[in-house]
Design a protein around this nucleic acid. Sequence first.
DNA 1: AAGACGTGGCT
DNA 2: TAGCCAAGTCT
Length: 355
Amino acid sequence: MRDTSPDPALSATLLEWYDRHARDLPWRVAPAARRAGVMPDPYRVWLSEVMLQQTTVAAVRDYFHRFTRRWPRVEALAAAEDADVMGEWAGLGYYARARNLLKCARAVTADHGGVFPDDHDRLLALPGIGPYTAAAISAIAFDRPEVVMDGNVERVMARLFDIHTPLPDAKPALKARAAQLTPRTRPGDYAQAVMDLGATICSPKSPACGICPWRDPCQARSAGTAPELPKKQPKKTKPTRRGIAYIAERADGALLLERRPDSGLLGGMLGWPGTPWAETPTEDAPPFAADWQELEAEVRHTFTHFHLILRVRAARLPDGPVPPRLHLIERTAFRPSDLPTVMRKAYDLWRGGAA
DNA sequence: AAGACGTGGCT
DNA sequence: TAGCCAAGTCT
Protein backbone atom coordinates (compact mmCIF):
# COMPACT_ATOMS: atom_id res chain seq x y z
CA MET A 1 0.00 0.00 0.00
CA ARG A 2 1.62 3.19 -1.12
CA ASP A 3 1.27 6.59 0.46
CA THR A 4 -2.18 8.08 -0.01
CA SER A 5 -1.68 11.73 0.85
CA PRO A 6 -4.19 13.90 -1.00
CA ASP A 7 -3.30 15.04 -4.47
CA PRO A 8 -4.71 18.52 -5.22
CA ALA A 9 -4.41 17.84 -8.94
CA LEU A 10 -6.90 14.96 -8.87
CA SER A 11 -10.07 17.04 -8.89
CA ALA A 12 -8.61 19.32 -11.55
CA THR A 13 -7.87 16.32 -13.77
CA LEU A 14 -11.45 15.11 -13.40
CA LEU A 15 -12.92 18.54 -14.13
CA GLU A 16 -10.87 18.74 -17.33
CA TRP A 17 -12.28 15.40 -18.38
CA TYR A 18 -15.80 16.55 -17.48
CA ASP A 19 -15.43 19.71 -19.58
CA ARG A 20 -14.89 17.48 -22.60
CA HIS A 21 -17.13 14.50 -21.82
CA ALA A 22 -20.05 15.68 -19.67
CA ARG A 23 -23.20 13.86 -20.68
CA ASP A 24 -26.04 15.96 -22.03
CA LEU A 25 -28.85 15.44 -19.53
CA PRO A 26 -32.14 17.34 -19.51
CA TRP A 27 -31.74 18.55 -15.92
CA ARG A 28 -28.11 19.55 -16.34
CA VAL A 29 -26.47 22.85 -17.27
CA ALA A 30 -23.45 22.05 -19.42
CA PRO A 31 -20.04 22.92 -17.91
CA ALA A 32 -19.38 25.72 -20.41
CA ALA A 33 -22.65 27.43 -19.51
CA ARG A 34 -22.06 26.95 -15.78
CA ARG A 35 -18.66 28.59 -16.09
CA ALA A 36 -20.46 31.49 -17.76
CA GLY A 37 -22.66 31.83 -14.70
CA VAL A 38 -25.77 29.89 -15.73
CA MET A 39 -27.16 27.82 -12.87
CA PRO A 40 -29.76 25.05 -13.06
CA ASP A 41 -33.31 25.39 -11.75
CA PRO A 42 -33.27 23.90 -8.22
CA TYR A 43 -36.71 22.40 -8.86
CA ARG A 44 -35.37 20.41 -11.79
CA VAL A 45 -32.25 19.40 -9.88
CA TRP A 46 -34.37 18.18 -6.97
CA LEU A 47 -36.82 16.33 -9.22
CA SER A 48 -34.03 14.62 -11.15
CA GLU A 49 -32.14 13.65 -8.00
CA VAL A 50 -35.21 12.07 -6.43
CA MET A 51 -35.98 10.18 -9.64
CA LEU A 52 -32.36 9.04 -9.89
CA GLN A 53 -32.36 7.48 -6.42
CA GLN A 54 -31.53 3.82 -7.12
CA THR A 55 -32.66 4.38 -10.71
CA THR A 56 -30.76 4.65 -13.98
CA VAL A 57 -30.59 7.72 -16.21
CA ALA A 58 -32.16 5.70 -19.03
CA ALA A 59 -35.22 4.92 -16.91
CA VAL A 60 -35.57 8.49 -15.63
CA ARG A 61 -35.38 10.52 -18.86
CA ASP A 62 -38.95 10.14 -20.08
CA TYR A 63 -40.43 10.49 -16.60
CA PHE A 64 -38.49 13.69 -16.09
CA HIS A 65 -39.84 15.12 -19.34
CA ARG A 66 -43.41 14.18 -18.53
CA PHE A 67 -43.23 15.62 -15.00
CA THR A 68 -41.64 18.91 -16.02
CA ARG A 69 -44.01 19.35 -18.96
CA ARG A 70 -47.04 18.71 -16.76
CA TRP A 71 -45.73 20.50 -13.64
CA PRO A 72 -43.11 23.06 -14.73
CA ARG A 73 -42.66 24.58 -11.29
CA VAL A 74 -42.80 23.38 -7.73
CA GLU A 75 -46.00 25.30 -6.98
CA ALA A 76 -47.75 23.49 -9.82
CA LEU A 77 -46.63 20.12 -8.50
CA ALA A 78 -47.72 21.12 -5.00
CA ALA A 79 -51.21 21.84 -6.33
CA ALA A 80 -51.50 18.52 -8.19
CA GLU A 81 -53.90 15.76 -7.21
CA ASP A 82 -52.23 12.88 -5.39
CA ALA A 83 -53.66 10.36 -7.85
CA ASP A 84 -52.24 12.26 -10.83
CA VAL A 85 -48.73 12.31 -9.38
CA MET A 86 -48.85 8.65 -8.36
CA GLY A 87 -50.13 7.75 -11.83
CA GLU A 88 -47.38 9.73 -13.53
CA TRP A 89 -44.78 8.00 -11.32
CA ALA A 90 -46.19 4.53 -12.01
CA GLY A 91 -43.56 2.20 -13.41
CA LEU A 92 -40.61 4.06 -11.97
CA GLY A 93 -40.66 2.15 -8.68
CA TYR A 94 -39.94 2.97 -5.05
CA TYR A 95 -43.28 4.71 -4.72
CA ALA A 96 -42.49 6.28 -1.36
CA ARG A 97 -40.44 8.65 -3.46
CA ALA A 98 -43.57 9.91 -5.20
CA ARG A 99 -45.48 10.32 -1.95
CA ASN A 100 -42.56 12.23 -0.44
CA LEU A 101 -42.13 14.21 -3.65
CA LEU A 102 -45.58 15.66 -3.18
CA LYS A 103 -45.05 16.27 0.53
CA CYS A 104 -41.80 18.05 -0.29
CA ALA A 105 -43.31 20.17 -3.05
CA ARG A 106 -46.09 21.22 -0.70
CA ALA A 107 -43.63 22.01 2.10
CA VAL A 108 -41.43 24.09 -0.20
CA THR A 109 -44.49 25.94 -1.46
CA ALA A 110 -46.13 26.47 1.92
CA ASP A 111 -43.07 26.95 4.15
CA HIS A 112 -40.43 28.38 1.81
CA GLY A 113 -42.47 30.54 -0.54
CA GLY A 114 -41.93 28.15 -3.45
CA VAL A 115 -38.15 28.59 -3.29
CA PHE A 116 -35.92 25.63 -2.51
CA PRO A 117 -33.68 26.30 0.49
CA ASP A 118 -30.04 26.68 -0.53
CA ASP A 119 -28.39 24.99 2.38
CA HIS A 120 -27.80 21.35 3.24
CA ASP A 121 -29.53 21.26 6.61
CA ARG A 122 -32.80 22.78 5.52
CA LEU A 123 -32.84 20.54 2.45
CA LEU A 124 -32.22 17.53 4.67
CA ALA A 125 -35.27 18.41 6.72
CA LEU A 126 -37.58 18.02 3.70
CA PRO A 127 -39.45 14.75 2.98
CA GLY A 128 -37.61 12.34 0.71
CA ILE A 129 -34.34 14.27 0.91
CA GLY A 130 -31.64 12.30 2.70
CA PRO A 131 -27.90 12.90 3.10
CA TYR A 132 -27.07 12.17 -0.52
CA THR A 133 -29.82 14.25 -2.10
CA ALA A 134 -29.28 17.21 0.26
CA ALA A 135 -25.60 17.26 -0.64
CA ALA A 136 -26.28 16.79 -4.35
CA ILE A 137 -28.79 19.66 -4.53
CA SER A 138 -26.51 21.91 -2.46
CA ALA A 139 -23.60 21.19 -4.76
CA ILE A 140 -25.32 21.07 -8.15
CA ALA A 141 -27.93 23.79 -7.74
CA PHE A 142 -26.02 26.13 -5.40
CA ASP A 143 -22.35 25.27 -5.96
CA ARG A 144 -21.69 24.48 -2.34
CA PRO A 145 -18.63 22.28 -1.62
CA GLU A 146 -20.62 19.36 -0.19
CA VAL A 147 -19.29 15.83 -0.04
CA VAL A 148 -21.68 14.00 -2.33
CA MET A 149 -21.68 10.29 -1.49
CA ASP A 150 -23.63 7.87 -3.64
CA GLY A 151 -22.98 4.43 -5.03
CA ASN A 152 -20.85 5.84 -7.83
CA VAL A 153 -18.62 7.82 -5.52
CA GLU A 154 -18.24 4.84 -3.20
CA ARG A 155 -17.13 2.65 -6.09
CA VAL A 156 -14.76 5.26 -7.54
CA MET A 157 -13.16 5.93 -4.14
CA ALA A 158 -12.84 2.23 -3.33
CA ARG A 159 -10.93 1.78 -6.58
CA LEU A 160 -8.91 4.97 -6.58
CA PHE A 161 -7.57 4.07 -3.12
CA ASP A 162 -7.81 0.27 -3.46
CA ILE A 163 -9.97 -0.12 -0.37
CA HIS A 164 -10.97 -3.76 0.19
CA THR A 165 -13.13 -3.39 3.29
CA PRO A 166 -16.61 -4.61 2.34
CA LEU A 167 -19.58 -2.22 2.24
CA PRO A 168 -21.22 -0.92 4.32
CA ASP A 169 -18.29 -1.03 6.80
CA ALA A 170 -16.12 0.87 4.33
CA LYS A 171 -18.44 3.88 4.13
CA PRO A 172 -16.62 6.12 6.66
CA ALA A 173 -13.25 5.55 5.00
CA LEU A 174 -14.74 6.13 1.55
CA LYS A 175 -16.40 9.32 2.69
CA ALA A 176 -13.13 10.58 4.18
CA ARG A 177 -11.42 9.99 0.83
CA ALA A 178 -14.24 11.73 -1.04
CA ALA A 179 -14.00 14.69 1.34
CA GLN A 180 -10.28 15.01 0.65
CA LEU A 181 -10.94 15.32 -3.06
CA THR A 182 -13.95 17.65 -3.02
CA PRO A 183 -12.73 20.96 -4.47
CA ARG A 184 -13.71 24.47 -3.35
CA THR A 185 -13.96 25.55 -6.96
CA ARG A 186 -16.70 24.17 -9.22
CA PRO A 187 -18.01 21.73 -6.59
CA GLY A 188 -21.25 21.30 -8.55
CA ASP A 189 -19.47 20.23 -11.71
CA TYR A 190 -17.11 18.07 -9.68
CA ALA A 191 -20.01 16.22 -8.06
CA GLN A 192 -21.58 15.55 -11.44
CA ALA A 193 -18.21 14.58 -12.86
CA VAL A 194 -17.54 11.83 -10.29
CA MET A 195 -21.01 10.42 -10.84
CA ASP A 196 -20.60 10.54 -14.62
CA LEU A 197 -17.26 8.80 -14.24
CA GLY A 198 -18.85 6.07 -12.10
CA ALA A 199 -21.80 5.68 -14.45
CA THR A 200 -19.77 5.46 -17.64
CA ILE A 201 -16.07 4.59 -17.26
CA CYS A 202 -15.71 3.35 -13.68
CA SER A 203 -18.69 1.02 -14.07
CA PRO A 204 -19.38 -1.88 -11.72
CA LYS A 205 -18.38 -4.56 -14.19
CA SER A 206 -15.52 -4.33 -16.68
CA PRO A 207 -14.53 -0.72 -16.01
CA ALA A 208 -12.91 1.07 -18.95
CA CYS A 209 -9.68 1.81 -17.09
CA GLY A 210 -7.79 2.41 -20.34
CA ILE A 211 -9.64 5.66 -21.04
CA CYS A 212 -10.13 6.79 -17.43
CA PRO A 213 -8.88 10.29 -16.55
CA TRP A 214 -7.76 8.84 -13.20
CA ARG A 215 -6.07 5.74 -14.58
CA ASP A 216 -2.57 6.87 -13.52
CA PRO A 217 -3.34 7.62 -9.86
CA CYS A 218 -5.83 4.72 -9.50
CA GLN A 219 -4.42 2.26 -7.00
CA ALA A 220 -6.84 -0.54 -7.86
CA ARG A 221 -5.84 -0.32 -11.50
CA SER A 222 -2.19 -0.74 -10.47
CA ALA A 223 -3.13 -3.65 -8.27
CA GLY A 224 -5.44 -5.21 -10.88
CA THR A 225 -8.33 -5.20 -8.39
CA ALA A 226 -10.61 -2.57 -9.93
CA PRO A 227 -13.28 -4.93 -11.30
CA GLU A 228 -13.79 -6.61 -7.91
CA LEU A 229 -14.20 -3.38 -5.93
CA PRO A 230 -16.03 -2.33 -3.93
CA LYS A 231 -16.44 -5.55 -1.96
CA LYS A 232 -19.94 -6.14 -0.66
CA GLN A 233 -21.57 -8.33 1.91
CA PRO A 234 -23.24 -11.36 0.31
CA LYS A 235 -26.96 -10.99 -0.27
CA LYS A 236 -29.71 -13.11 1.10
CA THR A 237 -31.70 -15.20 -1.32
CA LYS A 238 -35.20 -13.98 -2.10
CA PRO A 239 -38.17 -16.10 -1.04
CA THR A 240 -41.09 -16.69 -3.42
CA ARG A 241 -44.52 -15.42 -2.45
CA ARG A 242 -47.84 -16.22 -4.11
CA GLY A 243 -51.13 -14.43 -4.41
CA ILE A 244 -54.28 -13.94 -6.46
CA ALA A 245 -55.42 -10.77 -8.21
CA TYR A 246 -59.06 -10.26 -9.18
CA ILE A 247 -59.97 -8.31 -12.30
CA ALA A 248 -63.65 -7.43 -12.55
CA GLU A 249 -65.12 -5.78 -15.64
CA ARG A 250 -68.60 -4.34 -15.80
CA ALA A 251 -70.61 -4.83 -18.99
CA ASP A 252 -69.73 -1.31 -20.15
CA GLY A 253 -65.99 -1.97 -19.67
CA ALA A 254 -65.52 -0.19 -16.34
CA LEU A 255 -62.89 -1.83 -14.11
CA LEU A 256 -62.76 -2.42 -10.37
CA LEU A 257 -59.57 -1.23 -8.69
CA GLU A 258 -58.33 -0.35 -5.23
CA ARG A 259 -56.14 2.45 -3.92
CA ARG A 260 -53.47 0.75 -1.83
CA PRO A 261 -52.73 2.13 1.63
CA ASP A 262 -50.06 4.82 1.82
CA SER A 263 -47.57 2.70 3.71
CA GLY A 264 -45.95 -0.51 2.61
CA LEU A 265 -45.42 -2.16 -0.74
CA LEU A 266 -46.77 -0.15 -3.71
CA GLY A 267 -48.13 2.30 -1.14
CA GLY A 268 -50.54 4.86 -2.54
CA MET A 269 -50.74 3.14 -5.93
CA LEU A 270 -53.69 1.80 -7.83
CA GLY A 271 -53.99 -1.96 -8.08
CA TRP A 272 -56.27 -4.95 -8.46
CA PRO A 273 -57.93 -6.21 -5.31
CA GLY A 274 -56.52 -9.53 -4.21
CA THR A 275 -55.19 -11.82 -1.53
CA PRO A 276 -52.15 -10.89 0.51
CA TRP A 277 -48.88 -12.12 -1.01
CA ALA A 278 -47.33 -14.79 1.17
CA GLU A 279 -45.01 -17.78 0.98
CA THR A 280 -47.75 -20.05 2.24
CA PRO A 281 -50.77 -19.82 -0.07
CA THR A 282 -53.49 -17.64 1.35
CA GLU A 283 -57.22 -18.06 1.32
CA ASP A 284 -59.30 -17.15 -1.64
CA ALA A 285 -60.58 -13.59 -1.04
CA PRO A 286 -62.54 -12.29 -4.03
CA PRO A 287 -63.99 -8.78 -3.71
CA PHE A 288 -67.48 -10.16 -4.42
CA ALA A 289 -69.07 -13.51 -5.07
CA ALA A 290 -69.02 -14.48 -8.73
CA ASP A 291 -67.98 -17.20 -11.11
CA TRP A 292 -64.28 -16.25 -11.12
CA GLN A 293 -62.31 -17.68 -14.02
CA GLU A 294 -58.61 -18.22 -13.47
CA LEU A 295 -56.34 -17.35 -16.37
CA GLU A 296 -54.01 -20.12 -17.49
CA ALA A 297 -50.87 -18.04 -17.45
CA GLU A 298 -49.54 -16.34 -14.34
CA VAL A 299 -47.67 -13.15 -13.59
CA ARG A 300 -44.09 -13.48 -12.45
CA HIS A 301 -42.48 -10.44 -10.94
CA THR A 302 -39.49 -9.80 -8.71
CA PHE A 303 -39.45 -7.12 -6.04
CA THR A 304 -36.45 -6.00 -4.05
CA HIS A 305 -36.84 -8.67 -1.42
CA PHE A 306 -39.06 -11.42 -2.86
CA HIS A 307 -40.23 -13.13 -6.04
CA LEU A 308 -43.94 -13.09 -6.72
CA ILE A 309 -46.09 -15.56 -8.60
CA LEU A 310 -49.48 -13.98 -9.11
CA ARG A 311 -52.52 -15.89 -10.33
CA VAL A 312 -55.15 -13.77 -12.07
CA ARG A 313 -58.89 -14.41 -11.85
CA ALA A 314 -61.51 -12.54 -13.85
CA ALA A 315 -65.27 -12.08 -13.58
CA ARG A 316 -68.07 -9.86 -14.81
CA LEU A 317 -69.03 -7.16 -12.31
CA PRO A 318 -72.79 -6.90 -11.94
CA ASP A 319 -74.47 -3.50 -12.00
CA GLY A 320 -75.10 -2.12 -8.56
CA PRO A 321 -73.15 -0.86 -5.58
CA VAL A 322 -69.34 -1.05 -5.64
CA PRO A 323 -67.75 -3.15 -2.88
CA PRO A 324 -66.31 -1.06 -0.04
CA ARG A 325 -62.87 0.57 -0.44
CA LEU A 326 -62.87 -0.20 -4.17
CA HIS A 327 -63.12 2.21 -7.07
CA LEU A 328 -64.97 1.66 -10.29
CA ILE A 329 -63.03 3.32 -13.07
CA GLU A 330 -64.71 4.00 -16.40
CA ARG A 331 -62.82 2.38 -19.22
CA THR A 332 -62.26 5.74 -20.94
CA ALA A 333 -60.68 7.09 -17.76
CA PHE A 334 -58.53 3.99 -17.17
CA ARG A 335 -54.87 4.29 -18.16
CA PRO A 336 -52.84 1.08 -17.75
CA SER A 337 -49.80 3.33 -17.40
CA ASP A 338 -51.21 4.53 -14.05
CA LEU A 339 -50.57 1.05 -12.64
CA PRO A 340 -47.37 -0.13 -10.99
CA THR A 341 -45.65 -2.65 -13.22
CA VAL A 342 -46.78 -5.79 -11.45
CA MET A 343 -50.41 -4.68 -11.73
CA ARG A 344 -49.98 -3.71 -15.35
CA LYS A 345 -48.58 -7.18 -16.04
CA ALA A 346 -51.78 -8.67 -14.64
CA TYR A 347 -53.84 -6.33 -16.79
CA ASP A 348 -51.84 -7.20 -19.91
CA LEU A 349 -52.28 -10.89 -19.20
CA TRP A 350 -56.04 -10.55 -18.76
CA ARG A 351 -56.56 -8.34 -21.77
CA GLY A 352 -54.42 -10.57 -23.95
CA GLY A 353 -56.64 -13.51 -23.09
CA ALA A 354 -59.97 -11.66 -22.98
CA ALA A 355 -59.70 -9.17 -25.80
C1' DA B 1 -29.87 -0.57 12.62
C1' DA B 2 -31.08 -3.93 9.57
C1' DG B 3 -34.77 -4.54 6.54
C1' DA B 4 -38.42 -2.64 3.49
C1' DC B 5 -38.95 -0.61 -0.62
C1' DG B 6 -39.53 -1.41 -7.71
C1' DT B 7 -38.03 -1.83 -11.93
C1' DG B 8 -35.56 -2.70 -16.23
C1' DG B 9 -31.18 -3.57 -18.32
C1' DC B 10 -27.14 -6.16 -18.61
C1' DT B 11 -24.20 -10.33 -18.24
C1' DT C 1 -31.57 -18.13 -16.89
C1' DA C 2 -30.85 -15.94 -12.68
C1' DG C 3 -28.36 -12.68 -10.36
C1' DC C 4 -26.45 -8.22 -10.06
C1' DC C 5 -26.91 -3.55 -10.28
C1' DA C 6 -28.54 1.82 -10.35
C1' DA C 7 -27.46 9.49 -8.69
C1' DG C 8 -30.99 6.26 -1.26
C1' DT C 9 -34.55 7.11 2.21
C1' DC C 10 -37.29 5.80 5.90
C1' DT C 11 -38.39 3.31 9.96
